[in-house]
Amino acid sequence: MATDLAPPATKAARKAEKGRRPGRVPVRTALLRYRWLYLMLIPGLLYFVLFKYLPMYGLSIAFQDFVPFLGYSDSPWVGLKHFENLFTGPDFGRLLFNTLFLALLTALFVFPAPIIVALLLNELRVSVFKRYVQSLIYIPHFLSWTIVFSLTYLLFSVDFGVVASWIHSLSGGGPKVDYMAQPEWFRPLVILQLLWKTSGWGTIIYLAALAGVDPNLYEAARMDGAGRWRQFWHVTLPAIRPTIVVMAILTSGNLLDQSFEQIWLLTNSLNRSVADVFDTFVYYVGVTQGGYSYATAVGLFKGVAGVVLIFGSNWLAKRLGQRGLF
């Protein structure tokens, strides 16, 4: 019965909900019947209204030439000027390509990394070792990009880089490769930095999910004669699948956001053609132009893309038989 090893918890939950799902009920009845649930919702709703939705009027500056001193009411309205500049500007194609390319690489390499590490950690049988590894690999999360960049330079500089000269001597001499300057090495470096800085920290959420697995399930699987691999496949993986799906959907919304500081520090005149992304370009616009309005226009554009991605991936997840976000 190996195929029927989904956590009973999940099944029970589904059954319970199905059983209680009511038809349409009058508002007053609903309010009365679920008054405690609504009561619990109120502080959170208040938060979202106050700190998230009340400031949303700030988005209007995408259609203005916003001057901080003049404020929202007195800054001149310019219609779609900033969107026109964005979409028809000579840099748009390149920015979009670079941003999407990095997003794709992030989704392919950076997103799965913590899952793999968490699963490997879960299989470790020496628990002291496990604890040490676990505590060490999440430390990079606390270092700022400036420090990460200094470390990268220390390792990859063509002049004194430890790793660079190591690779150089291993590959048997020849001209030295300047990893920091060559456009083709820019993306691998960005991904390497991201992997180093975020993979360890990212495991926490999956480890929490794995901690919730009922040990009896493994016991039951073993009684059914399942080996290690099959236990992994039929118990461990299904247990964290909902978490993976939720994380995938949520991160898809922010896929077009790159860490400005990370990219900016790695950019130089020789690799700029591949390095420029929306987030760094917004910064350059800000330097010359103040750029609040332009930045907001770019933010709106990315936001729309993010909404599409979130709802798209949510729809996809449901089509694939997963639960999705809601």
Binding site: Y153, S157, V158, D178
Partner: peptide
């Protein structure tokens, strides 16, 4: 310096 284009 060989890293003239990138030296921080």
């Amino acid at each position: 310096n060989p890293d003239w284009a990138t030296l921080d």
